[in-house]
Computed example of a mutant assay.
Amino acid sequence: MTDRAANEENHAFPHPPVYRFTSGIYQDYQALERASKDLLKQHYPRYSRFGTPMTDAVEHEITRLEGGYGSLSTCSGLAAITSVLMTFLRPGDHILLTRTVYEPVHRFVSTFLHQLGITATFLTSAEFSHCDDYLTDKTRLIYIESPSSNIFEVTDIGAVAVQARQKGIMTVMDNTWSTPVLFNPLQHGIDVVIHSASKYLAGHSDAVVGIITTTEQYYAPIRQYLMNAGICAGGEESSSLYKGLKTLTTRLKNQRETAHRLIAFLLAHPAVETVISPHLTSHPDHETYRKYYQYSNGLFSFSVRNTSSTRRDAFLSQFRTVKLAYGWGGVDSCLIPFTPSYTSNDDPEWLFFRVSVGLEDGDILIAEFSSALSKL
């Protein structure tokens, strides 16, 4: 029986146990020899770096949610992203990426991949709609983050997938914003889906873990790379993720509803210049968003006119329930200032903040924002 089939049949407990081990113990030489020939190390017993019952359970559940062939867990969302890029890219290759991609990804591509002789073109969501204009005979991979970091540009996923498939180019999408509950990229022609599971999937800001879900074509090469590079997720982090998946749909619904209340308050506030969320008709990619999404999540951004550092600090000092933190997607509401990557870093006209709504009472959050905005 395969590990996947075993997981499907094991319903004795609500959560699989966390096995703390390094190497599994073989019963005899024949079992050891069979394991040595199992190149992808998918059968037990095995070394824990190749997977444990807990990581198998998480990967099985994400595969089910995304509708993929298989999933692979890593030690972080960034590790998931860089592992996929390193698996398939070679010196001389060219890639297309979202212009407002997660900053560490932008940095990895612009520095490390550039040093390897891999070139990149960063596109807006509008440019992606005719991405064939930017393809070259060296283009090997298209990487999309949609909605993208902080300003939530929404790419026409289906259109990109069609153009890529016609050219034989693989497509990769960061689906962290959406989670499998809101969108399934594989069902729209994407080849590889990545999640920073530290965000909404785990949901409690207590685990750093990444997940890769693929079609059959790309599963084995990525697994082989992860094994060779020694990149794996730990049992405790995987356990936190597994439990987070149980409440994912409920958390997203609650966070979305509270975020909509807070957005309505901010839209009406005289100190707020703009609110950025793709579910708003004011967002430039709203029509594309409506093509793929029924619901939003608890993440949005807003801007105020740039002011003195004293007033900015006074604004931030008013928050108690809302935390000043980079993380998002957890049960605690967080806020962080940012400068959009398409603007100058030198004295921008507007001051931007990204907000991740948690599970606190909406009235408390609105009261804190009201008090904070009075200081600007």
Rank of each mutant, 00 (worst) to 15 (best):
M1G: 10
T2P: 06
D3Y: 10
P14V: 12
P16F: 09
R20P: 00
T22A: 10
S23W: 07
I25A: 06
D28Q: 09
L32A: 08
K37D: 04
K41W: 01
K41A: 05
F50T: 02
G51A: 00
A57W: 09
E61K: 15
E61Q: 15
E61P: 13
G67D: 03
G70D: 06
L72H: 03
C75I: 06
A80R: 02
V84F: 08
M86H: 09
F88H: 09
H94P: 00
L96S: 01
T98P: 00
R99A: 14
V101R: 02
Y102R: 07
V109T: 12
V109K: 08
S110N: 13
S110W: 05
F112D: 15
L113W: 12
Q115W: 11
F122K: 09
F122V: 07
L123Q: 00
A126L: 10
H130W: 10
C131A: 14
Y134L: 04
T139M: 07
L141T: 04
I144D: 06
E145F: 01
E145R: 05
P147S: 03
P147C: 06
S148A: 00
N150C: 15
E153D: 10
E153K: 04
D156M: 00
V162D: 09
Q163R: 12
Q163P: 10
K167V: 01
T171W: 04
L182A: 14
Q187F: 13
I190K: 07
I194V: 14
H195M: 04
A197S: 14
S198A: 14
Y200Q: 06
G203E: 05
S205T: 12
S205Q: 15
V208Q: 14
T213F: 13
T214F: 04
T215C: 05
A220W: 09
G230S: 11
A233S: 08
G234Y: 01
E236D: 14
E237F: 13
G244D: 02
K246H: 13
T247F: 03
L248R: 09
N254M: 12
T258V: 13
F265G: 15
L266R: 10
A268N: 13
H269F: 06
V272L: 06
S277R: 01
H279M: 10
T281A: 14
P284L: 01
Y289N: 03
Y295D: 15
Y295S: 14
L299Y: 13
F302K: 12
S303E: 09
V304I: 14
Q318E: 10
K323W: 13
G327C: 05
G327N: 12
G329V: 04
P337M: 06
T339Q: 11
P348N: 12
W350Q: 15
L351A: 15
L365S: 07
S370A: 12
